[in-house]
Simulated scan of single mutants.
Amino acid sequence: MEPISHIDSNQGLLFFRGLNATELAETSRFEDVAFLLVYGNLPDGRKRIQFRRKLTKLREIGERNIDTLLSTTGEIQESSTSDRPYVLETRGLRKLAEKLDTYGNIHELNAVDKMLLFMSTAPSVAAAEWRKMHGKTRIASSDSLHHGANFLWMLNGTSLNDPDSKDLDSCLILHMDDPENPSLAALQSTYAATGSVSEATVAALDKHVGPLHHGAGTEAMRMITEIEGHPQVSSLLAEKLERGEKIYGLGHRIYRTIDPRAKFLRELLKRRAEVDQRWAKRLESIEEIAKQGSRLLLEKKGKVVHPNVDLYNAAAYESFGIPYSLNTDLFAIARSAGWAAHVSEWQ
């Protein structure tokens, strides 16, 4: 069986089970690619229906106690991590993770099904927590909607047409797995040491957070909104570098060329800009940051850098009406499919 994911760093390509990840994002639905990662091949029609039914049943288990679960999110104490704001952003998902072993014992779920329960229920928890924080009542999930569209429905009651629903799934698919990242290492080491899906998932979430990890998209979006429309983008970025600050969204530890996920999301934003000029302006700002930031890093630090996925992902989600403060949660929602696949291989 092909590896869950691997990267061709020189060509700038990401593969899931030997298939080009950006092509999968273009043609497939979230549930189909999750099936591919966990079981090693894309589902046929019968398996697709069975898998979606399975995810629905698992989500029903996880959703039964959402109100109780969210009533305890305020109990999360100071974490050992210094990235406190990001821990708060993902606290609902963390509480869900803590319950996975309990759900497994009650409903006789194996380790993979516990992870699939997390994957299927995480959008419900993240949306419900956001609505609770904003004084709004929870919106029930819909069995008829795909993964991304269901999250948006639960978040703000928005119904997407099929092309937009597919585009939102595409954004999530691109973040499903990465062969080398801190959250996966934490998941693996904790699961090997404890055999506990709950403890392993909590450990992965704790490593998942932070401005240098999957909170980088949030930081990139803050930078974009700060700079957007400014006549001297180069000067602002130069000042950031002088202060020792990071230009988020540029450079990658593995890719030696532009991150293929960034290329995909840039084209997606171009399509969305054709029907809404707000995103044309936003994309123009992003491209200027990429151009000027790359030039400055080459001049000042001798580094050749290219845009990575963080420069585009929060803006892409925001174009669907999703606040960029939820970017870290969305990364975890997507990455949970990869976590489920890795747990499956460790059995």
Rank of each mutant, 00 (worst) to 15 (best):
I139K: 06
P231S: 05
D169G: 05
I224A: 10
A216E: 04
A126Q: 02
T218F: 10
A193P: 00
S141E: 11
A238G: 08
A128V: 03
N181D: 00
V209L: 09
A186Q: 13
G195Y: 01
T158S: 14
I227K: 02
A126W: 10
I224W: 02
Q232I: 01
E129K: 02
R138G: 06
M119H: 14
L116I: 12
M221E: 10
S234H: 12
S159Q: 07
W153N: 11
D164I: 09
F151Q: 03
L155W: 00
A126E: 11
V202F: 10
G195K: 01
H208Q: 06
W153Y: 14
I139W: 09
K114S: 03
R222A: 02
P163W: 00
L241R: 06
K136I: 07
T225I: 12
E199V: 00
E180K: 09
Q188F: 05
A122N: 03
L187E: 02
L184S: 15
S142R: 15
P182E: 10
D164P: 04
V197T: 10
L152F: 10
G217D: 05
Q232W: 04
C171E: 00
S198V: 07
P182F: 07
S165K: 13
L155A: 06
F118G: 08
R131I: 00
L152D: 06
W153S: 07
M223T: 04
S189D: 12
L184M: 15
P163M: 09
G135F: 05
A216F: 04
A140V: 05
T158K: 15
A185Y: 09
Y191C: 03
S170C: 03
A204C: 07
W153I: 06
Q188H: 12
K207M: 15
